[in-house]
Amino acid sequence: MASAKAYKDAGLSARLADRYYRPAQDSDPTFVRDVEKISGTVAHICYQCGTCTGSCPSAPRSSYRIRNFMRRVNLGLKEISLTDPDLWLCTTCYTCSDRCPRDLIPTDVIMAMRNMAALRGIVPKNFLGTVNFIYQTGHGVPNSDANRAARVKLGLESEPETTGKYPEYLPAIRKILEAYGTKQLADKVLAEGQ
């Protein structure tokens, strides 16, 4: 994709960059295969009707176009897909998936690309924050002192019957998070950010 020309004027070189899409160098044929494997949906039969974007609550307020991501998958445009910040604007409402006339699940295509981006360490920090909360407490949204007091006031125990009350369940959770390398990924990426 757009590659700068070797002109002496860097500004001109960038402005006049070669903008052809050339499959031989720009397309990664493994991309669609990997996305389909993770998502379990045959993304390559997308015919670009735009029903997905038309159904998307994020489209009217951003540059996020789920149809465009489907197109990129089919063309093998891996780099631009995984590094595009719009990838993280899908609210996973699945409205596109309900309406897709090709019976695809575009939302899961987005999830697959997010998984692939995360493998490379490209993942917003709030996602990893949730991992750490769960690693520490078992809950993505942990209990708080104010809430404990409120619970008691309602006649509930201050800790729910979950890992909150039974921390002995936590080691198993931690083992699972470590087995998939999720905890390690969170630590690594969050550390890089500091």
Partner: peptide, 16 residues
């Protein structure tokens, strides 16, 4: 002993 479900958006995005 239940935990977070875990959050489908956050966890599913990182690694299904």
């Amino acid at each position: 002993g239940a935990s977070c479900c875990p959050a489908p958006g956050a966890f599913g995005s990182i690694d299904l």
